[in-house]
Amino acid sequence: MRRDIDHLLAGTAPAPGPGMTRGARELFEEITSHAVEEPETAGAEPGPGSPRRWRRWGLSVVAALVAALGLAGPGFLGLGAGPAAAALDIRQENGFYVVMVRDLYADPEVYQEQLRGLGLNVSLRLVPASPSLVGRIWEGTVRTGGEPTAEGGRRKDAIETIDGCLTADFPCAIGLRIPVGYTKKIDITLGRRGREGERYTLIASVDAPGEPLHCTGFRGERVDRVIALLRSRGVPDAVFVTADGDRATVPGSWYVHEGVLRSAGSARLLVGPTHSRPDVPGPRMRGDDCVKDSS
C-alpha cells in the first residue's frame, strides 16, 4: 500500500538532465587534470558526513579554484585554447575500441598520439564535409585541390563508423569502431562538420539524402526557383558554374542542372540557358534516387 503514494510521487519526478554530454566529458578532463590528494592526507580525514571533513573541504575547494584559474585562465575567459583535453574518447566494448571524436578541430598529431597509445597504427584526419557525409569514413587521403566528389572509398573491413550521423542534424557525434588488436597501418579520413564559411573537402550532390535539396526535384528547374528553395532550407548564398566559367550572377530564367554545397550556407550550381547540361570538366553529381520515406 505504501507503494501507492510512492508511485504517485514517482509520476511527478522532474525530467532527468541531459545526461552524458560533451560538457560532461570536458568536465571529466578538467577534474582529472588536477593531481589526487595524497592518500596519507586524505586518509586522516573522516567520512563524507563529518562536519570536520566539510570544513576542510571548503579550504580545498578554494585551493582547487586558484589552481584551475591559474592553469586555464585565458581559456576560461574565452581567449585561449582552454584546458588541455583529449581529442578522442576511447573505450573498449565487445572486442572493439569505440573511438568518439571529442575535438573536431584538434591537430591530427593529437589524434595520432591517442591512437598510438592503444597500439593502433591508424592515422586519422578529419576534413570538413557536406552534411550527409559528416561521420562518414574514407580510406586514404582525400583529394584536396578543387572540389572533389565523395565517390567511393568507403571501407568494407572491420573498421566501422558509429551509426547515427546520416542526417543533416547537428551537432552530430562522430566516431569509429576499431577491432582491438588491429595491426595494419591505415590512413583514415573522417568527415566532420565545417566551421562557418569553411569550404567542404568532402562534397555530395545537393539532392543526396541528408542534403538540403533532397527530394525537391530541382534538376531542370529555373535558377530563381532553386535559389528560393535553397534559401527556404537555410542556404542563402550561391555561385554558378556555366559553360564559360564561374559567375556570381546569372539570369533567373536559366536552368539548374546539378549542385553541391561548397560550405555551410553556400551552394555551387551548374547552370545554363537551356535544358541541355553544359559541358564542363569534372564529375557528374548523380541524382538523388528520391525515396520520400527515407528522407
Binding site: 538532465g17 541531459p18 554530454t21 560533451r22 560538457g23 560532461a24 570536458e26 568536465l27 578538467e30 577534474i31 575547494v61 578554494v62 579554484l65 584551475a68 584559474l69 586555464a72 576560461f76
Partner: peptide, 14 residues
C-alpha cells in the same frame, strides 16, 4: 558555496 571555474561548457549546455 562558490562558483567554480570548472564546467564552463556544461553550464552553457544546461
Amino acid at each position: 558555496s562558490r562558483r567554480t571555474a570548472l564546467a564552463t561548457r556544461l553550464r552553457a549546455e544546461l
